[in-house]
């Protein structure tokens, strides 16, 4: 969980060699309260109580989920039963598969589309006012609640009133059931995600393009670089860390996707849009099987901790000073 972080902002505490084992560094150097400067003691006095409190409050769920998963409803210890039931349920793997399909539709589309739009605006729109307008317009989908996004797309996809069928000339009996026919529903739900988050990718990529030094672009153009080679050899270099960042943020969001799917399809038809979060919801609150749900929650949290540990190595290092 540690991305190498540069030092503190004010002054510098005497560098302390990291402990390499219980006996490696004499205790008086490492933890002597009075070895620390007055300021450092002040810092710890301010930091530790508050941080300790929130750390505990945020860690309790994990501990409690483990306890709940290992005991029965009347509090007896039942070992890994709940985990066994969780992992032997075929619907879990169905949910994982559907989530994977959803992610593999949504992530590449959003990233390529967002990147493409950013390049397009960066190359063609020079007017500051117009750029500002696009900036604000692109922010709109991002800041609105997902529940409201669900409402918006209900209005577009629903059979009787939905505008999309009308625009396609499909009314009456030939209506397309976007949200309730198996192969279409997942794409309808994915399209909503794409609508909401492509602008997010756009904004980050556009901001990234502004950091490309104009001199190197001009030099390349003098050398006769085409639009593509300019992107491939110069701009992509500056965008690479941002692409990673966007990918990981979006990946985390895909794994937690719930709100708009719940509103549009409720996980249906059948289980085609029952993604991981909706599956956990169903086990916990529809079937009231809190034991199995806790086991699932533990598994998901453990998986996310592993994923995060891997991810944090690739994220741009802590930004300070």
């Amino acid at each position: 969980m540690t991305a190498g972080a540069p030092g503190g902002a004010i002054g510098t505490a005497p560098a302390v060699p990291p402990s390499r084992g219980p006996f490696a560094v004499p205790a008086r150097i490492r933890s002597g309260w009075y070895q620390r400067s007055r300021q450092e003691r002040l810092a710890l006095r301010l930091l530790l109580p508050v941080f300790g409190l929130v750390f505990v409050a945020a860690t309790i769920p994990f501990v409690l989920a483990v306890v709940q998963a290992l005991t029965s409803d009347d509090g007896r210890f039942i070992g890994a039963d709940n985990f066994g039931r969780a992992l032997s349920n075929d619907q879990l793997f169905e949910a994982i598969r559907q989530t994977a399909i959803y992610g593999s539709v949504v992530l590449p589309t959003e990233i390529l589309l967002g990147l493409g739009l950013a390049l397009l605006v960066h190359r063609t729109v020079k007017s500051r006012v117009l750029r500002a307008v696009i900036y604000v317009a692109a922010m709109i989908p991002i800041v609105i609640p997902q529940v409201a996004v669900g409402v918006v797309f209900r209005l577009l996809y629903i059979p009787d009133y939905g505008l999309i069928n009308v625009l396609l000339g499909q009314t009456g009996n030939s209506q397309i059931l976007w949200l309730s026919s198996p192969p279409l529903a997942i794409f309808a739900v994915a399209s909503v995600d794409i609508w909401q988050w492509t602008p997010f990718v756009y904004l980050i990529m556009f901001a990234g393009l502004q950091t490309v030094p104009p001199e190197s672009v001009e030099a390349a153009q003098l050398d006769g670089a085409t639009s593509w080679t300019q992107f491939r050899h110069i701009e992509l270099f500056y965008l690479r860390p941002l692409l990673l960042l966007v990918f990981f943020f979006r990946l985390a969001d895909v794994l937690r996707v719930f709100d708009h799917v719940y509103i549009l399809t409720g996980g249906g038809p059948g289980t085609t849009t029952q993604f991981l979060s909706l599956y956990l919801y169903r086990i916990a609150f529809r079937f009231s099987d809190l034991g199995q749900a806790s086991a699932l929650a533990v598994l998901v949290m453990a998986f996310m901790i592993v994923l995060y540990t891997v991810i944090s190595r690739f994220l741009p290092a802590d930004t300070s000073s």
Binding site: A5, G7, G8, E40, L47, A58, F258, I305, S312
Partner: peptide
């Protein structure tokens, strides 16, 4: 204030890691 880098990055990374937890879990 002069907080040791290890503690500082622990706090910040802990906070960032919360962002990645799925709310349903």
């Amino acid at each position: 204030l002069p907080v040791r880098p290890r503690m500082r990055s622990f706090v910040l990374n802990w906070a960032l890691s919360l962002r990645f937890l799925p709310p349903i879990a």
